[in-house]
């Protein structure tokens, strides 16, 4: 579908906060961690997947339930099943690796309950 964001396409060029350029498929956990460190204002959170189910409101989408950060805040987002998430120590993962491969040519692991995803939030000012 033409509405899919193309930054997940295999080969897409991603600029890290350090200025370094990498292909999306070559990104490592440390690239996100380092980028957040130097970006100022952004912070990496660990968001654990606690539930995956079909969206009640939006047919065709998947509701992903996370507990986010040290506060273990509960956050739910609805995404297409092919949407990739970056899992700590594992890399790109999605609810449907087959669809991700079809749409983006990006290799993904299956996203599962218990996976800890990279997410960002605003740095809290002390």
């Amino acid at each position: 579908a033409p509405s899919n964001p193309s930054h997940f396409m295999k080969g897409a060029i991603i600029q890290l906060a350090t200025g370094e350029l990498k292909r999306v498929e070559d990104l490592q956990t440390q690239d996100f961690v380092r980028s957040a460190e130097v970006s100022g204002g952004l912070k990496i959170d660990s968001s654990m997947v606690v539930d995956i189910r079909a969206s009640q409101q939006k047919p065709g989408l998947v509701s992903l339930h996370f507990t986010v950060g040290e506060q273990q805040s509960k956050v739910t987002i609805d995404v297409p099943p092919e949407h990739p998430f970056f899992v700590f120590g594992q890399g790109w993962s999605s609810c449907s690796p087959e669809r991700t491969a079809q749409l983006y040519d990006l290799a993904c692991h299956p996203l599962q309950v218990g996976d800890v995803c990279v997410s960002i939030t605003l740095q809290q000012q002390p």
């Binding site: 193309s6 997940f8 996100f32 970056f86």
Partner: peptide, 19 residues
């Protein structure tokens, strides 16, 4: 060739403030 910022790849999950 378009260049995308790193933060566009990961979700912004803002915890809801409770207080």
């Amino acid at each position: 060739v378009p260049v995308f910022p790193w933060h566009s790849l990961v979700p912004f999950l803002a915890p809801t403030q409770s207080d």
